[in-house]
Design a protein around this nucleic acid. Structure first.
Lengths: 221, 221
DNA sequence: GCAAGCAGGATTTTCGAAAATAATGGAATT
DNA sequence: AATTCCATTATTTTCGAAAATCCTGCTTGC
């Protein structure tokens, strides 16, 4: 693995997790010290992240972490619903037994980690990566690379907004919302190949998240 | 404008136009000579194009132009229909008079250039940029940056497949297809705010293009 | 005859410094 | 007091060379 790729993963994760705060300027000298490498691999990583809209670049004025806004969040979530609804229909149409088994496995692994988190010391990132794996498993049989690409992009964009909520309320159920239940119901309808119900549950799931994020951002402001 | 940005635009255009052929390896030394700059800005440009799927990177083995395939083309077009249909509905809902005027202007400018091309010496790129401008104008009132972003990405991806057709048959009507007529009808229904018709015409327009490309690629193979 | 191993060359990747540009702060002027 | 100008500093951007890695074709050993 090259340094460029390491820099890309590391900076990407740090932005999504909020370690590098929104709007924060990214000075080459600082990054070089923090990630222990020269300018070249860092600039390459930042160039890639710029296309993904996780960083903003201004010519001769360097890079900074992309800002967060309610409008952008709402846009990302509504676009997610558009793209993932279609991808989920395709996935349900094309999925085989391996696909079904993958969903069951991912849901179970997520539940294990959430339970573990409720009772103590598990990092947010460990839950988050299984949450991603679950949603990715639902779409695993979608035969369209472009739709999956857009899913990845939008997942990363919305993850930035969800992380602060997870950090605040370590027990996801503490928000008066049964997220694991939503995931189960969604998985059930997908496994039953009931595309219409699945798409409806998926949209509900995301819209509820959008509402929670919006409340929190309003409260913060 | 920095060299990085120049490199990005130049390489991007050369890939889309086919000046840099599909699957062709992109050697740093060659690129450095061709674009008259050092490695750093070139690598940054290539990193960005990698995210856009116009180039493929393999660690320690450099970059190459992304390959073309019928499957990828079909996928890009079907995803375009998904995204642009939705974006077009939103645009129709939100568009004001400036938006309408922009569509009329773009359609007219495109027609001028197509007529000019039929009677002689106008480059493919001059038509192509107005074709892009027309489709962009239709979506100009769409308030969703993410949908517009995906439109840009998919437009670039499909443009690579369309260019060889345009080069072969310099008069677009030579293909037994009245493309200008399709554009007019599409613009009319959009200006009349008839979203259902517009979305249908848009999908037809793209599916016809997909068929033409498919025929040509089958013939070539 | 054929596979494995190894030099030599080609190529990518990375670094550190130089060049170019922007930001800062103070002095001079209105 | 406010503004413009200039010098200084801070920062980004770019280059050219060094380091690391991969590819090629030969040799060696079986």
């Amino acid at each position: 693995m090259t340094l460029s790729e390491k820099a890309y993963s590391a900076i990407r994760r740090d932005i999504i997790q909020g370690v590098l705060a929104a709007d924060q300027p990214l000075r080459m000298a600082d990054l070089s010290a923090r990630y222990d490498m020269g300018f070249s691999p860092l600039r390459e990583a930042l160039s890639r992240l710029q296309v993904e809209r996780l960083v903003i670049a201004e010519a001769l004025r360097g890079f900074r972490v992309a800002p967060l806004s309610i409008d952008e969040m709402q846009d990302a979530i509504s676009t997610r619903i558009l793209v993932e609804s279609d991808a989920l229909r395709l996935s349900i149409r094309h999925g085989n037994d391996d696909w079904s088994a993958g969903i069951v496995a991912a849901l179970y692994a997520l539940k294990l980690q959430v339970d573990r988190a409720a009772s103590g010391a598990v990092g947010v990132w460990e839950i988050e990566s299984r949450h991603y794996a679950f949603h990715r498993a639902l779409l695993a049989a979608c035969p369209s690379p472009w739709r999956l690409e857009f899913f990845e992009r939008l997942y990363a964009a919305t993850e930035r907004y969800r992380i602060p909520i997870l950090v605040a309320s370590r027990t996801p159920s503490g928000s008066g919302r049964d997220i694991q239940g939503e995931h189960s119901a969604l998985a059930d309808s997908v496994l039953a190949r009931d595309a219409e119900t699945a798409v409806r549950l998926l949209a509900d799931h995301y819209n509820k998240t959008a509402l929670m994020i919006r409340d929190r951002m309003d409260a913060a402001a």
